[in-house]
């Protein structure tokens, strides 16, 4: 493995880590940066793949509170049920 490839892999590990670390110290800054990047990627002139990626990284609004998933304490409550979470289905299955 040559040095250039090693530096490329290191960059691919360090950059996302730095971005995450910024979010730990300043979540609002990270959200602002993430939102700006997502909106730029979502521009109509960009290819579909890029726009899809923009949609994926667009930050969603989070509820405040212990259930908001602050992920910064060992004893934090699990996040409140999100709309994406599967429903607990208590119906009896239809008879065939």
């Amino acid at each position: 493995m040559n040095d250039a490839l090693q530096y490329l892999i290191v960059a691919l590990i360090v950059i996302p880590s730095a971005f995450y670390a910024v979010g730990v110290f300043s979540p609002q800054t990270r959200r602002r940066v993430q939102r700006s990047a997502a909106l730029w990627l979502l521009k109509a002139q960009h290819p579909a793949k890029l726009r899809q990626f923009g949609l994926r990284i667009l930050p969603v609004e989070q509820a405040k509170g212990c259930g908001a998933g602050c992920s910064d304490c060992n004893n934090c409550a699990p996040p409140a049920q999100s709309p994406e979470q599967p429903l607990l289905d208590l119906r009896t299955p239809p008879r065939r």
């Binding site: 409550a77 049920q81 429903l87 208590l90 119906r91």
Partner: peptide
């Protein structure tokens, strides 16, 4: 704090 969740009742009501 208030906590929120959902389930589907036997009648299909959310």
């Amino acid at each position: 704090e208030r906590k929120e969740g959902r389930f589907l009742a036997p009648s299909g009501r959310l």
